[in-house]
Simulated assay, not measured.
Amino acid sequence: MISIQNLRKLFPGPDGPVTVLNGISLEIAQGETFGIIGRSGAGKSTLVRCVNMLERPTTGNIRVAAREMTTLNGAALGEARRGIGMIFQHFNLLSSRTAAQNIALPLELIGHPRGEIARRVDEMLALVGLSERRDAYPAQLSGGQKQRVGIARALATKPSVLLCDEATSALDPETTKQILALLKEINRSLGLTIMLITHEMEVVREVADRVAVLDHGEVVESGRVFDVFTDPRHPVSRSFVGEVLNRELPEALASRMHQSPSSAEHLVFRIIFTGPSANQPIVSEMVRRFGLSFNILQGHVDYIQGSPYGTLTVEASGTEQAKQSALDFLRLNNLKVEILGRVPATDRAVA
């Protein structure tokens, strides 16, 4: 549905061209919700604006619904844009128009008959749950209601693609949940392809199927949301995931740990559970099999796209052979293990 190949975008600067996007390549399938996440200045908003040619790429190719966007101009570009809806962080509603009139605007601009516009506006107001607020002006609407109007306006021309540029950044947490739930329902019921730009990993976790992490204009990691959350490879990805899933050790524990092995010391390691393994009584089984003693330091279970993901940090005491056998046992059961370090036997770790 959306194919981006080797996309580069340069802007003029006082000391020469500044590269904002550097060789971006992405494939987004029809009906998929794809998240683009990055810090401020990573290039994510420029990327989404290139998709509908609000910004012209310097080099590269962008295909949306089999159209090569970079070759289009004038009427052909206008026609292609009608198949691409867009919603913005700050809503961009006309203050002099009611909710219904804002939704009608794109249909008026392309010359739809008045009766057809009225029917479509009614459909869109019902879709976003604002039928009773059709005659309210933006100043009379809450932030969430304004964004609902923005979504309805973006969908008025029946696009196949919806671009969301920081669509929830101006909203409070509860309203954000409501808007994300609406986007999920729209994706499900209309089969829309959604490209979601955000700097919040919680937003990605809530609605996206796959995600690409941008840093300094480059894709540094991409994949299924569950995979990126549970096994982030790049430091930027790990930073984003850490904001949602806190895996940092308490400072008092981390300061006492070191790496050199000794049979007189206790081993500290983290077990990572995903999917069905999250329900296994793995610690009790290791106690029974290998005679180890465990001090549970830290634990957390979360759900990502409906699948459980948990971490358990433990301190193990026993013989070195028993510790190694326990680690081998965990790996044979397809559990990921991270060795974090060791603490002296006389200085038990405290979470």
Rank of each mutant, 00 (worst) to 15 (best):
V225D: 05
A316N: 10
L335D: 00
A118Q: 09
D172C: 11
G31R: 10
I151H: 04
G31Q: 12
D231L: 08
G85K: 08
S131A: 15
A29Q: 09
Q259P: 01
S260E: 15
Q140T: 08
H112K: 15
G150Y: 06
V18E: 11
L332D: 02
H112F: 14
G23P: 09
N246I: 01
T176V: 13
G43N: 07
G129Q: 04
R133C: 11
L192H: 12
Y303A: 05
E285G: 01
Q321V: 12
V244Y: 07
M1V: 07
P308E: 11
Q5E: 15
L180R: 05
G83D: 14
S160A: 15
L190T: 10
R205W: 01
P113W: 04
A42G: 03
V220K: 07
E174W: 00
H199K: 08
K44F: 06
V268F: 07
L249E: 05
R256V: 14
N187G: 15
L107W: 10
Q259C: 02
S131P: 08
A100V: 05
R134T: 08
Q324I: 00
Q178P: 02
I103M: 09
D215Q: 15
L327F: 05
Q5P: 03
L109E: 11
H258F: 15
G38W: 05
I4K: 13
R256S: 14
Q178A: 14
S293M: 10
V236E: 04
G38A: 07
V220A: 07
E206C: 04
A252W: 05
T46L: 05
M53R: 15
T346S: 15
T168I: 03
K177R: 15
V236D: 00
H258C: 13
P308S: 14
L130S: 06
S325C: 08
A252R: 14
A349R: 13
H112C: 13
V220S: 09
P232R: 04
S307Y: 12
G43K: 10
A156Y: 09
L340D: 10
L47S: 10
E315Q: 15
V211A: 12
L72Y: 01
D227W: 11
A252M: 11
F226R: 14
G41T: 10
F294I: 01
A316L: 12
E108Q: 13
S160G: 15
E320D: 14
L292H: 09
P138Y: 15
R247C: 01
M69Q: 02
E315P: 10
A75L: 14
R289M: 03
Q89Y: 03
H90M: 05
R238C: 02
D122M: 02
A349W: 13
T319K: 10
F290I: 00
S3Y: 12
A99S: 13
G223H: 05
P261R: 07
M195V: 15
I62L: 12
L141N: 04
S96C: 11
E27C: 06
A316R: 08
